[in-house]
Simulated assay, not measured.
Amino acid sequence: MQILDILFYLFLGVVFSQVILYVFVYGKFIFKKPAQLTACEAPVSVIICAKNEAENLKRFLPDIIHQNHPVFEIVLINDSSNDDTLEVMKTFAEQHANIKIVDVKAVETFWGNKKYALTLGIKAAKHNLLLFSDADCKPVSKHWIREMLSHFNGQKSIVLGFGGHTKVKRSLLNKLIRFETLTTAVRYFSFALHRMPYMGVGRNMAYKKELFFDANGFINHMRVKSGDDDLFINQVATPGNTAICFSKNSFTASPPKTNFKEWLNQKRRHITTASYYRFKHKILLALIYAFQVQFWLLATLLLIVSHKWQIVLALVLIRLSIQYIVFALAAKKLNSKDLIVLLPFLEIFLISIQLFIFITNLISKPIHWK
């Protein structure tokens, strides 16, 4: 058998695998409707860890303060800021009795480690239900808390939400960031529905305080400076204790990076954290990425050399058509419809950047939490 025939059959396998992924794995999320649950009025502690976020707190904290929920406290954690973050927190606390401030001083053992600051904030929280967001995040509605909390019950102790990014017109970087956010959300929502939860995002997630202490907090990965959200969920999530929330009133939105270098450094940190996931999750994510790369490389090669090009072209069109349908429906659910027209370009660009990041991380370690 000639090498081109081997590559052709390999391409057939890759296309088949991707169709299975899009139709049967992602399809479970795509066609799932938001659950109609009874509003939860249980008390909750909203936890926000901030390091040098004075301006963002002024801008976004009012949207959390004015949430439509009967009983909630806001735990503001000042993680050794050197700007006016603490002063801004104190100003809000003077005006709102439900705000609690945890002022974290730098400790040499945990220098620059957000997990240490978060642990102190969680300990200070007085309610069992904990809802997390970032200082630069804005709930898209006044019902954010209620929507997220409505998924807790006797079995569910984790709720994964969607933390999107605001749209910036005529910005390719903005589209790339939002596309990466979209694909990540589709993936972790889908696998959670298939009883294989593996991550969440700190911009919008919730879990029970008792779960945190039963797992001894971040102790198993305290030396890893990132991963206070996804790595912790990877550790404690089980097929039965995790719910997802994707109703549009439950979303949060944050300003995306406007500088490519800053975004690249952020992605380097995230990819480094993923190397600490459970083995089965690392293998699964590696296979998904490998099939993406192989699809484009093999399709390009086989079309260039015109080896069974009619079949190859037909398979490319079938795969792209299925991908378009799946992501169009996902984008509609997650308020990202404008991204679909650039889908193939954004996918190729993103997987190329991810390959570059992987190689770069082998050479040098990324900078962590501010």
Results as ranks from 00 to 15, higher is better:
Q2N: 14
Q2S: 15
L4R: 13
L7E: 09
G13R: 07
Q18C: 05
V25S: 10
Y26E: 04
Y26I: 06
Y26C: 06
K28I: 10
K33F: 12
P34C: 10
A50G: 08
R59G: 01
P62Y: 03
I64S: 05
N68D: 15
F72W: 02
I74Q: 01
L76Y: 00
I77E: 00
S80P: 01
N82F: 11
D83G: 07
L86A: 08
E87H: 10
M89N: 02
T91L: 09
T91Y: 08
A97E: 15
I99V: 12
K100S: 12
D103P: 00
V104F: 02
V107I: 14
E108L: 08
N113G: 05
K114R: 14
Y116G: 04
Y116L: 04
G121P: 03
I122L: 13
K123W: 04
K126I: 14
L129N: 08
L130A: 02
D134S: 05
C137K: 05
C137W: 00
P139Y: 02
K142T: 11
E147A: 15
E147L: 06
L149A: 13
F152L: 11
K156R: 15
L160V: 07
G161A: 02
T166L: 14
R178K: 12
F179W: 15
T181Q: 07
L182K: 01
T183L: 05
T184P: 00
M196E: 10
V201G: 06
V201N: 01
D214F: 06
N216F: 11
H221P: 01
M222F: 12
G227W: 01
L231N: 02
A237K: 01
I244S: 04
S247P: 05
T258M: 14
W263L: 09
S275E: 12
R278H: 13
Y289T: 12
A290S: 13
Q292D: 15
A299I: 05
T300W: 13
T300P: 03
L301R: 07
L301C: 14
V305H: 09
V305G: 10
V305T: 10
H307C: 06
H307M: 07
Q310G: 03
V312C: 09
L317E: 12
I322L: 15
I322K: 06
Q323C: 14
Y324H: 15
Y324V: 12
A330R: 00
K333T: 01
L334F: 13
K337F: 11
K337M: 14
I340W: 03
L343R: 10
F345T: 15
L355R: 08
F356N: 04
P366S: 10
